[in-house]
């Protein structure tokens, strides 16, 4: 079974999904991602879905949940490269993936990650100030 590579780049984790994932493989990937974030203490996660041609309700929900889980262990998530056909299909499928940040490519995704991270620390800063 082909594995999805999880790359560490500085403070961030990058996961390019290059293969068609069946449900069990997708669940395992979610587990591996969270484990990697925990092990490395990463503060950012980029999931690159530019090579994914089909995102159904299972994968859609899984991506949303992964971002939420990553958030709970201190990492912001950005989904990058979603194909427009996939976007249109997800909307028509009735899938609402809430609170998931997206970007066109990894470069934009990294920039967005930095903005999200600095936004977070600014909020915490002001709370302490009060």
């Amino acid at each position: 079974m082909s594995e999805v590579t999880i790359l560490k780049m500085g403070e961030n984790i990058i996961v390019p999904i290059q293969v068609e994932l069946h449900d069990r493989a997708a669940l395992k990937l979610q587990e591996d991602i969270l484990k990697k974030i925990e092990e490395t203490g990463s503060s950012g996660l980029i999931i690159d879905v530019s090579a994914v041609s089909v995102v159904d309700s299972f994968l859609g929900r899984l991506l949303g949940e992964t971002a939420k889980m990553a958030g709970l262990i201190g990492a912001e998530t950005v989904l990058v490269g979603m194909k427009k056909e996939v976007v249109i299909t997800l909307i028509q499928l009735g899938m609402v993936i809430k609170d998931l940040h997206t970007a066109i490519n990894i470069e934009d995704g990294m920039a967005l990650l930095e903005r999200l991270k600095s936004g977070k620390s600014a909020r915490i800063g002001s709370l302490n100030g009060k």
Partner: peptide
């Protein structure tokens, strides 16, 4: 997906059909 490509569906319609197949096969 192979059949849809051969039949001549647009990429969007291929995606929609294959996504529906994914839901129902699951």
């Amino acid at each position: 997906r192979l059949q849809a490509q051969e039949t001549g569906f647009t990429l969007l319609n291929q995606t929609k059909l294959v996504t529906a197949v994914s839901e129902l096969a699951r």
